[in-house]
Amino acid sequence: GPIVLDTYRVIGDFEKTSKHEITLQTGDLVEIVEKSTNGWWFCQCDTSLGWVPASYLEPLDAPEEPEEAEPNYAGELYVTTMAYKAELEDELSLEVDEEVEVIHKLLDGWWEVRKGDETGHFPSMFLKSAGRKEPA
């Protein structure tokens, strides 16, 4: 049968910053083709196809319905694959190869992580599970 794609509404103007992204305006409707855990979603808007930030979208049908997994305060061990310097006060600065506990995997790709006594948001694309062995 036909593939029915989820429709989302754009909640903020977004200007593309690379050629595989698409520019969006508040109120645009997009159909989601793929949801990547790094917070970039592949979608169609009119005749354009490209990546857009999940944080700029809300579900058309049930905007208040939580889609996210519940936080896991026990934490899940991950290791940073890139350094990142916090730009907002709710983010965490970390160097490469630091071990952190992921406590909330947010769909926008900015996971909540704990390092010692500090918690903050960190890009999920710079994290890999500590349980997974990388190929040599």
């Binding site: 903020g12 709710d90 790709g109």
Partner: peptide, 22 residues
């Protein structure tokens, strides 16, 4: 390929959304 997502972290949610979530 176009199916490769961008290599940079996506922008944070618009400020209004962050306030709503907080």
């Amino acid at each position: 390929s176009i199916k490769q997502p961008p290599q940079n972290p996506p922008p944070r949610p618009p400020a209004e959304m962050r306030r709503k979530r907080a």
